[in-house]
Nucleic acid binder design. Structure first.
Lengths: 259, 259
DNA sequence: ATGTCTTTGTGAACGCGTGCACAAAGATGG
DNA sequence: CCATCTTTGTGCACGCGTTCACAAAGACAT
């Protein structure tokens, strides 16, 4: 899960915990599926299973929104869909711009999950003049020169950055200057933004690295680690002193220092 | 940030907190950049700024790995790169399969961030026979029929699912049955997996919805909410009783119930 | 109307993560 | 060798998030 908020450390927004907000879309998806199957009500137990969470957690989450359930029965599906949608701000239309129409940007433009949730792709923007005018996902790609005008004309407040890492900060600055206050960043960089601008980051390679960590751990449980002695390219610290002592929290850290 | 682990609730893996593990790739990226600029050492303050975190947090994170710094000087960049890489399991090669070669799958296949971190795309797999053999990112797309053989032949333990939601669980089951124990899921579904299999989820639409929530909140700070009265399609609960009372945690929740 | 049964809503306890603030360690200069 | 200065490593406290467990609420049958 690519996660990561920036700024506003843990500001419990309007009394709703951040962790709960992050789960609301999950519930909404499960509820939408139930709604399409014309299921009238669900218990917290059933819905929790469908969303992949604990039922107590789900009930506590809903309790932050108000008392929308009926004891002995459960939750009314349609009503809950509406309440969560409203809470998340999905009853209104959110125009979005995607900057950087490479492989990933094109994939995002074609992604159906946006439109179905109240997000409308207002424009696709790329710095490459050769891309300008080319249709992607039914929209003509605009050149970066038009960025400010597009944002202002469409009242865009959410921007998606899918550029290479090197261009991300510059694009971010222009988006913010033009009035964007929420950014979804796919570029592998830490963006710095002024106060009041929200940034969320999705980093594909980080997710894989976390999986690799757990995978390595699983593999290491059976076979004791001998991989630490296989390489020879291990650099040594440049500092003088005896920094070769190891004080790992466990005793299983090999005391060898790569030469 | 698309985040979300599944199973193993908070198993502090080998003494390293999950939150720390999630930040190690961040540090690694910042350190790699420093390494390329031939910077010999960094202080926790500098590195923390580059990674976008608190310096105290960074020092505590590193303390879980051992004492790799030198007081009065800082951390040796090359040495730290090596230690974190080893800790994350990136000193070895991880063959990966990507299932579902649509727009997103193709974007992932072309993503450079994988190969540079020890991940090797062993195969691209798609269910569409028309895709079979077509080259994507320099690799010929394989048909789903070959899934089990590919995984077994290449010793693949990490799978990436980029299929439509409907196919995800089935693909997941086949991956797991074939020996995959870590899955990165881009399909908007909750996957159920047996014990011992790690699943991480990246959901593009969820990230946008979280941004929309905060965006709505920002907008609502100035203009008091009047949008709640604009629509007419609000469903009412099917249950009989007087469920129309609202007991929101704050008093700012409108007490009107959509008719 | 009364009793039973189901399911919600939440009080309370616990654990993890974060950040402060400082002592210990070592570099550096005289 | 001593003093000073920088920076790490960590003890401690605090707050958020999770989970348990149960009382309250309401549906439903009799």
């Amino acid at each position: 899960m690519a996660t990561g908020r920036t700024h506003r450390p843990a500001t419990r927004s309007r009394g709703i915990p951040e962790a709960t907000v992050a789960r609301l879309p999950l519930y909404l998806r499960a509820l939408t599926a139930l709604s399409e199957r014309s299921v009238p009500t669900v218990s917290s137990e059933e819905l929790a299973a469908a969303a992949g969470v604990n039922s107590a957690k789900l009930r506590k989450d809903f309790s932050y929104l108000g008392s929308y359930g009926t004891r002995g029965v459960g939750y009314d599906v349609e009503y809950l869909v509406y309440q969560i949608s409203r809470e998340l701000g999905l009853t209104q239309d959110w125009p979005v711009v995607i900057v950087g129409i490479g492989n990933l940007g094109a994939a995002l433009a074609n992604y159906g999950g946006f439109a179905s949730r109240g997000f409308r792709v207002a424009a696709l923007i790329d710095a490459d003049p050769a891309m300008a005018g080319k249709p992607v996902a039914g929209l003509p790609v605009k050149h970066t020169d038009e960025l400010e005008a597009i944002i202002s004309d469409n009242g865009v407040s959410i921007g998606v950055i899918a550029t290479p890492a090197g261009a991300a900060q510059q694009v971010c600055d222009r988006l913010v200057a033009a009035g964007v206050t929420s950014i979804l960043n796919f570029a592998p960089t830490v963006l710095s933004v002024p106060e009041g601008v929200d940034v969320r980051k999705v980093d594909l390679s980080i997710e894989l690295q976390i999986l690799a960590f757990h995978e390595q751990r699983k593999a290491g449980e059976d076979a004791a680690q001998e991989s630490a002695a296989q390489e020879s390219a291990a650099p040594a610290p440049a500092v003088s002193g005896g920094a070769d002592r190891r004080k790992g929290p466990d005793g299983d850290v090999p005391a060898v220092m790569p030469a």
